[in-house]
């Protein structure tokens, strides 16, 4: 049976269709989860996609973090279910307290849509397990508020705990200031929860699933979930 991805749609979400497309390319099934619902329809994995949930007029992700569906996502995550927040979804996870830190306005004070290089590192997560590319992943960003920020203790804890799972790097894999598109601390592009099952990232892997569109490096993140479940089933 294919893995079922639940894709949460808030009013103002716009990566839901792209995520569903990526999930299909990865050979899995996508179902829509409506923001006002309180149940997850038995999905195996939850994606919080990009967009401007409820317009993000108060603060990116602030209102969405209180949406009815998030209570269900919270329980799902607590039970070890894999949750991936992409862009606005990352902001929502931080606002909901499912991940530490916050996303500030880009250092440039401008919106940025561009390709970035990403190094996969840290402890394995449901989305990055098995990804050990020789060269940095090529995945684009598209955000105005993506500068990862947390207090020094939190950053140190993330680093020591292997919870920084994606970092902006140059073509040679070095986390240089020039490779950092938004001023994130430590070039952080993605982090995981302490248990590792909740991952938030600013770049858009769903836009990098086909060579036709410039890169297929993001597809592995959607495939990893199915591979992990298959592995778990085998070991059972």
């Amino acid at each position: 049976m294919p893995v079922r991805f639940g894709i949460v749609v808030f009013p103002g979400t716009w990566s839901d269709r792209d995520c569903a497309h990526a999930v299909a390319l990865a050979g899995s099934e996508a179902v829509t989860l409506w923001h006002a619902d309180r149940e997850l329809a038995g999905v195996d994995c939850v994606i919080l996609p990009g967009g401007f949930a409820y317009g993000d007029y108060l603060r990116a992700g602030a209102i969405a973090a209180h949406a009815p569906i998030i209570a269900a996502v919270r329980s799902f995550a607590a039970a070890g279910g894999p949750v991936l927040g992409i862009c606005n979804g990352f902001q929502v996870l931080c606002e909901a307290g499912l991940l530490p830190g916050a996303l500030l306005r880009n250092r440039s004070l401008q919106f940025r849509c561009q390709w970035t290089g990403l190094r996969v590192e840290g402890r394995p997560t449901p989305f990055t397990a098995g990804l050990a590319p020789a060269t940095p992943l090529r995945i684009p960003i598209s955000h105005g508020e993506g500068r990862y920020h947390a207090d020094p203790d939190t950053i140190a804890g993330l680093e020591l705990g292997g919870r920084v799972v994606l970092r902006y790097v140059d073509a040679r894999g070095a986390a240089t200031p020039d490779a950092n598109p938004n001023g994130s601390l430590h070039n952080i592009a993605g982090i995981a929860s302490a248990a590792g099952n909740v991952v938030g990232m600013m770049p858009h892997p769903e836009r990098a699933c086909e060579a036709l569109l410039g890169s297929a490096d993001g597809l592995g993140m959607f495939r990893a979930v199915a591979a992990a479940r298959l592995g778990a089933a085998r070991s059972r």
């Binding site: 269709r17 990009g50 849509c113 561009q114 598209s142 086909e210 036709l212 569109l213």
Partner: peptide, 25 residues
């Protein structure tokens, strides 16, 4: 100019800004 515009959302942009014409599939 165009790095401030999301030119990829929709997953159909084959060639975005910077060429003679944009191409979408």
């Amino acid at each position: 100019v165009w790095r401030q515009y999301d030119h990829m959302v929709g997953d159909d942009t084959v060639a975005g800004p910077g060429g003679d014409a944009a191409v979408i599939r």
